[in-house]
Design a protein around this nucleic acid. Structure first.
Length: 568
RNA sequence: GCGCUUGUAGCUCAGGGGAUAGAGCAACCGCCUUCUAAGCGGUCGGUCGCAGGUUCAAAUCCUGCCAGGCGCGCCA
């Protein structure tokens, strides 16, 4: 915005301080305001009001009217011509309105969800899915190149456990007294899988070895997760299998470990056991990069820990040529951040190359169907008591309980990632219609209904919308119109900030504001009826404002992965 | 014990140095013969966890305390 650029020139070097520009609540304080003179007064050794005046003298342009208020606030009033140009930009750019070009476009790898393929995705995964997909949309809109990746944890013990759990359920289904492994997956999804398998192969798998069960379960579970994610409007460009890191000779893991060894970041540690024997393990010296303790890489048994795979994986990611790696992790994994950063640094990249978004966990409440008590639902895949993403999409017991994609995504995105969300499932279902997502969607539907109405009445829209009269002033008559227009013009900056802060909830907040102002405008300002007969220029200007609102509502909802229906 | 994070209206949450702290829901009162009432207008509701400090200015930054969540394995 012209004003910001002007100030940018003034504060040289710009890094000296950021220019705070705020939107005053009081309309008397202009369209925008800045306390810049107040904060610079000490540095400049000039009284704030005098400084504000000096700044104003340098910034005066035809599009901005500046005034000094209070102790030294600089209030900015935008010209009608500027608003007119902005509205035309919205209409001209359409679905691309709000796209911005960054100072430096980055090639970003965004990794999220990355669940074990051992069961259905739970609501926590749903939060990362919503966040990740929305952040990807925002980053792309902000001019970056984003690859969304799902890291499949398909190696290790839990997969074997999955296999033996399925085997147990299958054999039990055949009437055998087959024991469930200790720590086995108790969830109903395994039982359902056993039933599916039974229908497919009959009893022919009675003597099948457990790896077969493991592979069967793995592919079924992964396919289910993919399906769920797609239904949840979360697309991945790449699915990365952990197993590929273990195969080959030398394997990626061995290569990664060797690379660290050559750089001198590994050490051996010998510990004495009680029986006098010794064990030797290999440690990665993560403390050199600020971790609290070194981490075991290779156990004394010779097996690699999970960390070895992490090293190989992040090494591979870095080699694939990204400027930035972003991982979305649940708060229960935040302890990994220092060691992940250590990996990146050990391979010679600055720590900022890896950015970790820590999302607080989703706390779920649900009324117990038996006791009627409101209680917290623990999200455990092994015990199978958690609420899944599918439950949100299709309902736990029946479609009547479904929250739906739009409402679920909106809810999960409506608060910042580091705020823990409380998800009261009963409330979510009961208040499904109070969800603000419908408020935003409804506003959009109303804009569409105007167009339908015009068509029915045979009213033709003008070829071009005019918002200014002959004297260059906005044609609008009500305060709601200018307010709405002003907010619509803020969209690019809102999207840009949301991308920069990886904060989709800013778009949610913005959407509520747009919908709110639109509904007020809708209530107050008619287009058809007597207006279009008595004052066609006003009717047409309002029609243009309808179209611009429609575009901004649609673009904002799309960025969040939420539908924008034409009718409700 | 150490680390990360949160504490704002009855509930769910925005705001993260600037003018009188916001929204939705809940509660209460109004508004449909006119483009969708899933809407609009109004009322009620706050010691911004507590205590110090920095600043012309603190919900916002710093310190301490209190409370909740999570994490601190030769687990994956």
């Amino acid at each position: 915005m012209a004003f910001k650029n002007g100030l940018g020139q003034l504060t040289d070097p710009p890094e000296l301080m950021s220019v705070v520009i705020e939107k005053p609540k009081n309309p008397d304080h202009g369209d925008y305001a800045t306390p810049i003179a107040l904060s610079l007064t000490k540095l400049a050794k000039i009284p704030p009001r005098a400084l504000a005046q000096a700044i104003a003298d340098h910034l005066e342009t035809p599009d901005l009217t500046l005034s000094i208020a209070g102790p030294g606030f600089l209030n900015v009033h935008l010209s009608d011509a500027l608003i007119d140009r902005g509205l035309h930009e919205v209409l001209a750019q359409g679905a691309d309105y709000g796209r911005t070009t960054p100072r430096r476009a980055e090639k970003i790898l965004l990794e999220f969800v990355s669940a074990n393929p051992t069961g259905p995705l739970h609501v926590g995964h749903g939060r990362w899915a919503a966040l990740g997909s929305a952040i990807a949309n925002l980053l792309r809109f902000a001019g970056h190149t984003v690859t969304c990746e799902f890291y499949i944890n398909d190696a290790g013990n839990q997969m074997n456990l999955l296999g033996t759990s399925l085997q147990a359920r299958y054999r039990q289904a055949l009437g055998e007294d087959f024991p469930m492994p200790e720590q086995g997956y108790q969830g109903s999804s395994i039982q359902e899988l056993a039933q599916t398998l039974l229908q497919e192969v009959g009893d022919s798998w009675r003597t099948q070895p457990d790896p077969e069960f493991r592979e069967y379960a793995y592919h079924q579970m992964l396919a289910q997760q993919e399906q769920t994610l797609r239904a949840f409007r979360t697309e991945f460009d790449h699915w990365f299998s952990e197993r590929t890191l273990h195969t080959g000779s030398p394997s990626a893991i061995e290569q990664g470990v060797q690379a660290l060894d050559q750089k001198g970041y590994l050490r051996l540690e010998t510990t004495q056991l009680e029986d006098g024997s010794e064990q030797v393990a290999t440690f990665f010296k993560t403390t050199e990069f600020g971790d609290d303790k070194d981490r075991v890489l290779k156990k004394s048994t010779g097996e690699y820990t999970y960390m070895a795979a992490d090293i190989a994986y992040h090494h591979a990611k870095l080699q694939r040529g990204y400027d930035r790696l972003i991982n979305i992790l649940g708060a229960d994994h935040h302890g990994y951040v220092p060691r992940l950063k250590a990996i990146v640094q050990a391979f010679g990249y600055p720590p900022d190359t890896l950015e970790v978004i820590i999302g607080q966990l989703v706390k779920l409440y649900r009324q117990d169907p038996v006791t009627g008590q409101k209680e917290e639902v623990r999200m455990s895949k092994r015990t199978g008591t958690g609420v899944t993403v599918d439950d949100l999409l299709y309902g736990i017991d029946s479609p009547k309980d479904a929250v739906g994609v739009d409402a679920a995504r909106w809810y999960l995105l409506s608060q910042s990632a580091d705020s823990p969300v409380t998800f009261d499932l009963d409330l979510a279902v009961k208040q499904r219609n109070d969800n603000l997502v419908f408020y935003a969607q409804y506003a959009h539907a109303r804009t569409c209904s105007l167009e339908r109405n015009a068509q029915e009445k045979g009213i033709i829209a003008p070829d071009e919308f005019h918002f200014l009269n002959e004297t260059g002033q906005l044609i609008f008559t009500e305060p709601e119109e200018r307010k709405l227009a002003l907010v619509l013009l803020a969209a690019p900056e809102v999207y840009r900030l949301a991308a920069q802060e990886r904060a989709p909830h800013r778009v949610v907040v913005y959407l509520v504001e747009v919908a709110d102002l639109f509904n007020k405008f809708y209530d107050r300002c008619r287009v058809f009826g007597s207006v279009i007969i008595e004052n066609p220029p006003l009717a047409h200007a309002r029609w243009g404002l309808f179209r611009a609102s429609q575009q901004v509502l649609a673009n904002s909802l799309t960025l969040l992965g939420i539908d924008h229906p034409n009718a409700m």
